[in-house]
Write a protein that binds this DNA or RNA. Structure first.
Length: 829
RNA sequence: GCGGGGGUAGCCAAGUCCGGUCAAAGGCGCUAGAUUCAGAGUCUAGUCUCAUAGGAGUCCGAGGGUUCGAAUCCCUUCCCCCGCACCA
């Protein structure tokens, strides 16, 4: 149902924009490579290609059934050579420009997927697909894409995007820029001889006088180098292996105890000249910064805990104004701002100023340099799996890694493979064995395939020119259509697809393929549909709502209507089998109405409502407030009478059409139209026809009827006659003056002879109005009379009794005397 | 811990930016009446409490405050959801 929801949101928007006269590119494509398909195929004992094709066919049936107005001529499927050859093409282009490289690194490995993962695909230390399985670290040589080259630009452009703030924030956090200083320390041996140097990145250079030790990450190559041949070697080696053997989740678990070992070396803090010990610790991350952390236990909680555990010294160098700290009684690190102490020439400065001054000093002395660090890592794109784009590279014994020439693309994914014994490509000699493009000697094909996020990073460009067999797309076509004006997707893409696609756009721009910076101008984040139990729909929970069963039972239009009527589409919502009945009911009412309505002349009240609805619905759809739009449409529908003019009926159908394309198209035709409603033009609002007095009339009549009911219920007697007294003419004069807000209301109104004739009652009424802080707008006396006279039949029918409407002047009744503008006197008898 | 979003009547959900027409839209559920042999469906009304004349009281997580007036503005506090998280 989640897919249906997402598609419906997009289709409504596309239909709306189309009717508004835009040339809308609204395509569909299938991100059909990938592990889920491969695994499902293996499980089902079939080939991924067969499995994928049937899944797509199935999808298409559902999508067509949903009435989605896709341009099917542009459909793409990423597992087709027509598509993935261009993945290979871009891979080679990136390789040429240095954006693709190969390196050995400690990488994320998901045992369930049996492949490596990019950083973005590890969530809370687990594979994004397998929340129940920890990701392991393995040292492997892999293909990477240099996304970090664009880290700064990716960050800078976030602010200019018309995206939900939370997604923008997630991107910023993910890119994770931090400004600091890289410091270089001399490393000395036991006897104080300088033997090496080590670099460390810090954002808190103001705390350098508080450094008491330094830790290296377990993976840091210097760890083993320093202990080699010493009595510490065995212990440290065991420690390092132990750390590496832990899963990411174990290593980063909250509140876990930190541990480490001394490395037998020291370093000199150039600021103090002090010699402090060098440690290896599990809390230092090799991938971030330089993989080494200067430790300031007094001002960093992690260092504080570590120092406490191993009895390492602590030195306070920042205190809150006017306070002192005693290291013996300090219960936690002090990480806030304050005044510098025990920091040589910087004493007395506030620490923020000191940060700059110390950085200046470090740079002057050559001890370090200002550095900007990003959390974003390069994108690990190779996967040890079959169902993906083959990486177009060849390993030659003599030439090394050689790219496949562009003319030889695509490197086809072989069909004939067997599963079960590792990567099927590796075990396929026909695929693996090849000749080196350079020396023509024997060579092996790269057997890794690409992360499927590579496929999805540029598909929107392919939509512009999906049949092009000579190029990924023609530049003039992308120039016409792109960037995407409106993108719709879930928040789960925030730090994966949306990062990669943005990177791709920038990289392709710099390679000369595109002339814009960002792929998706506006992003709308749809909410999630939860099962009736309130949980996310999942097969394992058994709370899935099968779209086809729903379509069958309620029909497509009712389903579409329901999906966007409950809540704003950007909010999560809980599926409700009851509530969809309400949508179905409405659709049935619309159908019945259009089956019986006669065309004729509409009344001005309906015209007024129609135009107000056009105005509001247009605005609501444009702002994705579909639930509001539907509420307006319902209200408008309630106002329609058995005879309406054709234009009114057509406008109503137009407003409803994006939501319910089928029934509206049907009745559009029955009204005598030859062309499709879906390509007709969106109605425009005629402000002239909107008269707020109609609302007052409705309110007045409703109010009177409600009052009658209430009185009847209180006296518990069915009335025989109902007398309704329209307030005295002079009360309207007074009320209108009061609405204008005069200060001397009483004397002002008493100047009017008609009012004065009412005597004390007039003064009293004026006074009571002045006491009210808010006055409702009212109708003129005569309009009230007309409105109520028009409603006599209605009231008579409801209460099955006679109804008399008269002016209060015509009666001496006490009820007549209390009549007010907007609130006629009522007498039941 | 940091950041973001929320808490509105039996349920879902508007309203909050720009305070008053807010006992608070709409939908669902429920109740009553009409239609019907009956049910379904449809239509009408009601659905916080009290009330023998259209009224009164209480209410928008909790507690304070500003204001003639607060669901709406300010402060404090509790709870829920989401993202990031040993990032130096």
């Amino acid at each position: 149902m989640c897919h249906a929801f997402n598609y419906t949101i997009g289709d409504i928007y596309a239909r709306f924009k189309r009717m508004k006269g835009f040339n809308v590119l609204y395509p569909m494509g299938y991100d059909s490579f990938g592990l889920p398909a491969e695994n499902a195929a293996i499980k089902a004992g079939t080939h991924p290609k067969v499995y994928t094709d049937s899944a797509i066919a199935n999808f298409k049936v559902q999508q067509r059934a949903l009435g989605l107005s896709y341009d099917w001529s542009r459909v793409v499927s990423t597992c087709e050579p027509d598509y993935y050859r261009w993945n290979q093409y871009f891979f080679l282009k990136f390789f040429e420009s240095g954006l693709v490289f190969r390196k050995a690194a400690s990488v994320n490995w998901c045992p369930k997927c049996a492949t490596v993962l990019a950083n973005e695909q590890v969530h809370e230390g687990r594979c994004w697909r397998h929340k129940d399985r920890d990701v392991e670290q393995r040292n492997l040589e892999q293909w990477f894409i240099k996304t970090t080259k664009y880290a700064q630009e990716l960050l800078d452009c976030v602010d200019g995007l018309d995206w939900p703030e939370r997604i923008k924030l997630m991107q910023k956090n993910w890119i994770g820029r931090s400004e600091g200083v890289t410091l270089r320390f001399d490393v000395v041996d036991d006897s104080g001889v300088v033997v090496d140097g080590v670099e460390t990145f810090t954002t808190r250079v103001d705390t350098v006088y508080g450094i008491t030790y330094l830790v290296l990450a377990a993976e840091h190559p210097k760890v083993l180098e320093y202990v080699k041949g010493t009595e510490l070697e065995a212990g440290v080696l065991a420690f390092v292996e132990g750390v590496k053997g832990q899963s990411t989740i174990e290593r980063t678990a909250e509140g876990r105890e930190k541990s480490g070992m001394f490395l037998g070396r020291y370093f000199i803090n150039p600021f103090t000249g002090e010699q402090c010990p060098l440690w290896v610790a599990d809390y230092a991350l090799y991938e971030y910064g330089t993989g080494a952390v200067m430790a300031v236990p007094a001002h960093d909680q992690r260092d504080f805990e570590f120092a406490g555990k191993y009895g390492l010294p602590m030195r306070v160098v920042i205190v809150p104004e006017g306070e002192t700290f005693d290291t013996d009684t300090l219960e936690a690190a002090y990480a806030d701002d304050g005044v510098m102490v025990d920091s040589g020439v910087f004493n007395g400065l506030n620490n923020q100023d000191a940060k700059e001054a110390i950085a200046d000093l470090a740079e002057e002395q050559g001890w370090g340099w200002r550095t900007i660090n990003f959390k974003l890592r390069d994108w690990l794109v190779s996967r040890q799996r079959y169902w993906g784009t083959p990486i177009p590279m060849v390993h030659c014994q003599s030439c090394g890694v050689v790219p496949v020439p562009v003319e030889e693309l695509p490197v086809l994914l072989p069909d004939n493979v067997s599963f079960g014994g590792g990567n099927p490509l590796e075990n396929n000699p026909d695929f693996v064995n090849t000749n080196c493009p350079k020396c023509n000697g024997p060579a092996r094909r790269e057997t890794d395939t690409m992360d499927t996020f590579f496929d999805s990073s540029w598909y929107y460009l392919r939509y512009c020119d999906s049949q092009n067999s000579a190029a990924p797309f023609a530049p003039e076509k992308t120039a016409y259509w792109m960037p995407v004006d409106q993108y719709i997707g879930g928040a789960e893409h925030a730090t994966m697809h949306l990062i990669y696609a943005r990177f791709f756009t920038k990289a392709l721009r710099d390679l000369g393929y595109l002339d814009f910076d960002e792929p998706f101008t506006r992003l709308f984040n749809q909410g999630m549909i939860h099962g009736e139990d309130g949980f996310v729909m999942s097969k394992s929970r058994g709370n899935i709502i099968e779209p086809r069963a729903i379509f069958k039972r309620y029909g497509i239009d009712a389903t579409r209507f329901f999906l966007v009527s409950l809540a704003a589409p950007n909010k999560d919502m809980i599926w409700s089998s009851d509530a969809i009945e309400g949508s179905k009911r409405f659709i049935n009412k619309v159908i019945r109405y259009f089956e019986t309505v006669e065309t004729g002349v509409s009344n001005p009240m309906v015209e007024s409502k129609l135009n107000a609805a056009i105005r509001d619905v247009t605005e609501d759809i444009a702002g994705f407030k579909y639930n509001f739009a539907l509420r307006r449409i319902r209200e408008l529908f309630d106002a329609l009478t058995p005879v309406e003019n054709r234009a009114t009926l057509e406008s109503f159908l137009k407003l409803l059409h994006p939501f319910c394309p089928h029934i509206t198209e049907e009745f559009w035709e029955r009204l005598g139209n030859k062309d499709f409603l879906s390509i007709s033009s969106w109605p425009s609002c005629d402000e002239e026809k909107i008269d707020p007095r109609f609302e007052l009339v409705e309110e007045l009549v409703d109010q009177v009827r409600q009052d009658i009911r209430q009185i009847r219920d209180i006296v518990k007697e069915e009335p025989e006659t109902i007398k309704i007294y329209i307030a005295q003419a002079w009360k309207y004069m007074v009320y209108e003056k009061a609405l204008l807000g005069s200060k001397n209301l009483i004397s002002e109104v008493m100047a009017d002879p008609d009012v004065r004739r009412a005597g004390k009652a007039a003064a009293k009424f004026a006074q009571s109005l002045m006491k009210r802080h808010f006055l409702k707008p009212i109708l003129p006396q005569i309009d009230e009379k007309t409105a109520l006279t028009d409603s006599v039949k209605l009231i008579e029918d409801e209460f099955t009794c006679g109804v008399e409407i008269m002016f209060a002047e015509e009666s001496r009744s006490e009820k007549a005397a209390r009549a007010e503008p907007g609130r006629p006197g009522i007498e039941l008898s």
